[in-house]
């Protein structure tokens, strides 16, 4: 599986994404600069977590307008896989690749802690190595992860089986406890929790590994 990680200024989880991909796939991802207009030939594009453009204006807003996002959209349109983690999820909603928006946490504070997620849907490229209903522990670290969409959109997401992860013990006020969603073609996943932080037992667990295994199996 060939992958790329987009490097936005101050999206500071780019190294974490790179290390996790390297560890899981045995292959270093291409690191793609935000001003590049082309992507290398890859199967998976990761929009990492962090604070692109300092979260100024709105989280992910400026990154969603950067040059490389045109190429990311084209990649998604062709059916290529896109994974947006945390700030990457915010970039995906800001750029219209995923519906809804991520608002300030209901508690008004940044929250960093391990949370329990339930895997709601496994019939997709990102979660097939999980069991449906499985509970996994993955850390969140965000100030604006409160998922919002109008009722109709939420109903559609649920109806079409596009809610992949749901919080057990909602840390941010997300509508319907949503932690991660797919686009309608099911090749773009955005999620607030950080699967790349749980691939190494020394640093907090391995519950994120199955997500990468799922992608590897799908894409090779």
């Amino acid at each position: 599986m060939k992958s790329a990680v987009i490097v936005f200024p101050a999206a500071n989880c780019d190294r974490d994404a790179k290390v996790a991909l390297e560890q899981m796939t045995g292959q270093a991802p291409a690191m793609v600069w935000h001003q590049d207009s082309e992507l290398p030939d890859v199967d998976l594009v990761v929009l990492p977590g962090g604070f692109s453009y300092g979260d100024y204006l709105r989280c992910g807003a400026m990154a969603s307008q950067s040059r490389v996002m045109q190429a990311v959209k084209a990649h998604a349109d062709k059916g290529g896989m896109v994974l947006g983690i945390c700030n990457g999820f915010q970039v995906l909603t800001e750029s219209g690749l995923l519906p809804g928006a991520l608002m300030r946490n209901a508690g008004l504070k940044f929250v960093c802690k391990p949370v329990t997620l339930s895997v709601e849907e496994t019939q997709n490229a990102f979660a097939r190595h999980y069991e449906k209903g499985q509970e996994i522990t993955v850390p969140v670290a965000h100030g604006e992860g409160n998922y919002y969409a109008d009722e109709e959109t939420l109903n559609r997401l649920e109806g079409e089986g596009r809610v992949v992860f749901r919080y057990k013990g909602n840390p941010n006020g997300s509508a319907r406890d949503i932690a991660g969603i797919l686009n309608d073609k099911r090749n773009v996943l955005g999620m607030m929790p950080h699967p790349e932080r749980v691939v190494d037992p020394v640093t907090g667990g391995t519950d994120g590994r199955a997500l990468f295994h799922s992608l590897i199996e799908t894409l090779s």
């Binding site: 204006l57 709105r58 807003a61 307008q65 909603t93 928006a101």
Partner: peptide, 9 residues
């Protein structure tokens, strides 16, 4: 429409 506001919210 393009940047300053997120018209979803």
């Amino acid at each position: 429409d393009k940047l300053l506001a997120n018209t979803v919210i």
